[in-house]
Measured scan of single mutants.
Amino acid sequence: SAVVMEEGSPGEVPVLVEPPGLEDVEAALGMDRRTDAYSRSSSVSSQEEKSLHAEELVGRGIPIERVVSSEGGRPSVDLSFQPSQPLSKSSSSPELQTLQDILGDPGDKADVGRLSPEVKARSQSGTLDGESAAWSASGEDSRGQPEGPLPSSSPRSPSGLRPRGYTISDSAPSRRGKRVERDALKSRATASNAEKVPGINPSFVFLQLYHSPFFGDESNKPILLPNESQSFERSVQLLDQIPSYDTHKIAVLYVGEGQSNSELAILSNEHGSYRYTEFLTGLGRLIELKDCQPDKVYLGGLDVCGEDGQFTYCWHDDIMQAVFHIATLMPTKDVDKHRCDKKRHLGNDFVSIVYNDSGEDFKLGTIKGQFNFVHVIVTPLDYECNLVSLQCRKDMEGLVDTSVAKIVSDRNLPFVARQMALHANMASQVHHSRSNPTDIYPSKWIARLRHIKRLRQRICEEAAYSNPSLPLVHPPSHSKAPAQTPAEPTPGYEVGQRKRLISSVEDFTEFV
């Protein structure tokens, strides 16, 4: 048969007729292969192709491409040299491709048809291009793949890379869960390890502090508590009631339409708007009261037996805890006409967050109470924005700035309102402590230090009264110190430094 060459192609190359033996071998191979691939376009007849790359030819070592076609129900084999250009295909004639002069020997084609199974398996396991790669995943090629499931790999992101949580363990979102698992493993320790309690022994800490320079003076030496005195035992138990972190309780009120001037209507609300609910979820963490331990979680007086509701929101960081007394989460009882059960919590909070959804101005004093010092007013606006402002009593104007209003988005509203309420509550605590000038409020841990110092002074006084020969370590507060001759004046800087060093040991009130 003659071949018409394309323009620009090399000279004529004689194409030899395939021997009958080659056709029989390739026909047997075509019957084993699956003929249901995917359909081509209507211009080209339905056909199945599979590209198999052999590394070497037997005796020649030339890479070839073998295409199996099922045109007219008769499979045909096409061998081509890759750099050459194939002729145009037609549905009426068999596929013809040019070969190099080196394939002119018909014996070479017979060798190609009689490829060993080793070469076929190696060509099938190679990388296939384009559409033949999808075909190689079918059941027909499963014989050339190794048996057994593939090893499982770690989760992959859409980009093909490992997620960040699997790369950096410290930033993994499941870090707290692993800590819980470690605690569970520790709890399952053997009885021999049960006595080993991690941490620092208080006796060891005391020993280090006792021999430090801070205890060089007799006034700073630790003293032993009497065991037989019940009054001192009660004082030590009272110390446990003062937490070592700051605590805040903040009221949250929802004002519906037409309720801006009605205290009873505001306290009777059992739910609010959708934006109000989203605002609550951002204030803190939802907790169930019956599962809380009052000595570990500050509840601000809420009952854990269901008297004040089942849930509330709280927030904490390293040095403070805040609980929100939310009116809509507290039960509304029919027998309580004046809502006294709610007001006994909300009316005693220094700061209230008022979500004013009424469309009218909310005035300070609508919720009557002796300790309502500051109101954080949240007014929802259009386009997911809110107006946040402050209202306070006249005696609080020096501590709280009420002249600045803020426009905040719904997303950042819980954070801004919480921070403003916490700052206002700190100012309210300082303002409330002014009624007792001898006990200015600095912080909870300073209050613990003052309680310890008062307890020490009482013990020293009782020891001096029981044994008059012992001198008083600290003179009583009601006694007057003996007159001392004025010492020589020293520079102001040295006096300030000495006073600062003494105050650092005794108390921190002056620095606050």
Results as ranks from 00 to 15, higher is better:
217 D>E: 13
218 E>S: 06
219 S>E: 15
220 N>W: 11
221 K>M: 15
222 P>Q: 09
223 I>F: 09
223 I>V: 12
224 L>R: 07
225 L>K: 08
226 P>V: 15
227 N>I: 11
228 E>G: 09
228 E>R: 05
231 S>G: 12
232 F>H: 06
235 S>D: 15
235 S>N: 13
236 V>N: 07
237 Q>C: 08
238 L>H: 12
241 Q>E: 15
243 P>C: 07
245 Y>N: 07
245 Y>A: 05
245 Y>K: 14
246 D>F: 06
248 H>E: 03
250 I>G: 01
255 V>P: 00
255 V>M: 02
256 G>N: 03
256 G>T: 03
257 E>Q: 09
261 N>Y: 04
263 E>P: 05
264 L>D: 14
265 A>D: 07
269 N>F: 00
271 H>L: 08
272 G>H: 02
272 G>P: 03
274 Y>Q: 07
275 R>W: 00
276 Y>D: 00
277 T>K: 15
281 T>I: 06
282 G>A: 03
282 G>I: 01
283 L>F: 02
284 G>F: 04
285 R>D: 15
290 K>F: 05
290 K>I: 06
290 K>Y: 07
292 C>N: 12
292 C>L: 08
292 C>H: 15
293 Q>R: 13
294 P>I: 14
297 V>N: 15
301 G>C: 06
301 G>P: 14
301 G>M: 06
302 L>N: 15
302 L>W: 15
302 L>R: 15
303 D>I: 02
304 V>C: 11
304 V>R: 07
304 V>P: 15
306 G>F: 07
306 G>W: 05
310 Q>H: 08
313 Y>S: 06
314 C>H: 15
314 C>K: 08
316 H>I: 15
317 D>R: 01
317 D>Y: 01
319 I>E: 13
321 Q>R: 13
323 V>I: 08
324 F>V: 02
326 I>W: 02
327 A>C: 06
328 T>Y: 01
329 L>K: 06
330 M>Q: 06
332 T>G: 07
334 D>W: 07
335 V>T: 14
335 V>P: 09
338 H>F: 14
339 R>Y: 15
340 C>R: 15
340 C>G: 14
341 D>K: 15
343 K>S: 13
344 R>K: 12
344 R>D: 11
344 R>Q: 12
345 H>S: 07
346 L>Q: 05
347 G>D: 15
348 N>Y: 08
349 D>L: 11
349 D>P: 10
350 F>C: 03
352 S>E: 02
355 Y>V: 01
356 N>F: 00
356 N>M: 00
357 D>Y: 00
358 S>W: 00
358 S>F: 01
359 G>L: 04
359 G>V: 02
360 E>H: 05
361 D>Y: 06
361 D>N: 08
362 F>P: 01
362 F>L: 06
368 K>D: 14
368 K>M: 10
369 G>Y: 05
370 Q>F: 14
372 N>V: 08
374 V>Q: 01
375 H>P: 00
376 V>E: 00
377 I>D: 03
378 V>K: 00
380 P>C: 01
380 P>N: 01
383 Y>C: 06
384 E>Q: 15
385 C>E: 10
385 C>A: 07
392 C>W: 04
395 D>P: 05
399 L>R: 02
401 D>L: 03
402 T>I: 07
403 S>E: 08
407 I>D: 02
407 I>P: 03
409 S>P: 02
411 R>Q: 12
414 P>M: 01
415 F>S: 03
416 V>E: 03
416 V>Q: 03
418 R>Q: 04
419 Q>W: 05
421 A>L: 01
427 A>Y: 10
428 S>V: 15
428 S>E: 01
432 H>E: 09
433 S>M: 08
433 S>A: 14
433 S>P: 04
435 S>P: 04
435 S>K: 11
437 P>L: 06
442 P>M: 06
442 P>D: 09
443 S>N: 13
443 S>K: 08
444 K>C: 06
445 W>V: 06
446 I>V: 14
447 A>E: 15
448 R>L: 06
453 K>H: 13
454 R>W: 12
455 L>F: 10
456 R>G: 14
457 Q>R: 08
457 Q>N: 13
458 R>F: 14
458 R>T: 15
459 I>T: 13
460 C>A: 11
461 E>F: 10
461 E>V: 09
462 E>D: 13
463 A>G: 10
464 A>Y: 07
464 A>V: 10
464 A>C: 11
466 S>D: 10
466 S>E: 14
467 N>T: 13
468 P>D: 13
468 P>G: 09
471 P>L: 06
473 V>H: 15
475 P>A: 12
475 P>Q: 14
476 P>M: 11
476 P>G: 15
477 S>L: 09
477 S>Q: 10
477 S>D: 15
477 S>P: 12
478 H>W: 12
479 S>W: 11
479 S>H: 11
480 K>M: 10
481 A>S: 10
482 P>W: 07
483 A>N: 09
483 A>H: 11
483 A>W: 08
484 Q>N: 12
485 T>I: 11
485 T>C: 12
486 P>W: 10
486 P>M: 12
487 A>F: 12
490 T>R: 11
493 Y>F: 13
493 Y>S: 15
495 V>K: 15
498 R>E: 15
499 K>F: 10
500 R>D: 14
500 R>Y: 10
500 R>G: 13
501 L>E: 13
501 L>M: 11
502 I>P: 14
509 T>G: 14
